[in-house]
Amino acid sequence: MPRSLPRPRVGLLYNPTTPRVLAYANGLVEHLSVMPDRLWFDFGSEAPPGRRFHRVHDAIARVAEDLVGRSFAGHGLGLSLPSAIPLDEEMVAAGAAISRDLGGFAWHAEHLNLFIAPRGSVPNAQAGLGLPVIYDDEAFDLMAAKLRVVADAFACRILLENGSFFTPVPDLDYTEPEFLNRLLHAGLSGTLLDLHNLLVSARNGGMDPVAYLDALDLDGVEEVHLAGGDDHEGFYMDSHSTVTPDVVWELAYEYLPHCGNLKAITFEYQESYFDDLGLPTLAAELERIHALAEACGRPAEVARAG
């Protein structure tokens, strides 16, 4: 389906170095993706009721300043929705409160990754390790119940982001795009399509990105993430350490003009690589995303020909 205007906005995943990017290239950033988990200290389940989440007031004030004049959405790290454990409703409430206090997320995204099991967890760093999910009816029912609660709490659309994996899971009932489509068609969530995660998973033995994107209902894609990674001992990592690689740009130009409900294209970089990347490189990357967004704002046939 050809897109209609307006074109998607160009965004950044907010981190502590973002204010420096905004000072350098303010007009290039139209959208910010905010991680509530980075705006509080979570003292954990052993804290007494009502005392678990301690806000980082200075950081929240700074984010609020930077959101002025921009669209913004939430990006959660800690809920681990696919886990076969009860929903962390205290964290949902804390995230929803951050959303309300910032003026209301346009949408809120969570990861389609496993971070927590009943007796253990994998550390959920910003560019960290999420484990693969079993895509079957049991997982669907589990996710559906949790998504309804999260959507009610945040009072906005919920998106799920495809993860990056080192180890594909064999013999699944649904592929990941089929699972995302099923959630979409049930009215439970839209898709945050991380194109770099597709590359990471494919380089590490997962599904071919073209087959993945051909199977995905592109009308469900409401936000896209772009990022770069690096090789480590023969494996490709989603380290958010570099600019978007060429193969991801090719996928973006091929498929994003067909995403009829795409609202934002967001670049992710890890703040520990800020000095390596440098402001001119980050600004050039944002300009490049603007060109992509313009291409998405035209009918798909025109964009492809261009």
Partner: peptide
């Protein structure tokens, strides 16, 4: 499922 996930994390 919970046991599978626990095993995977472990």
């Amino acid at each position: 499922l919970a046991e599978f996930q626990q095993a995977l994390v472990d």
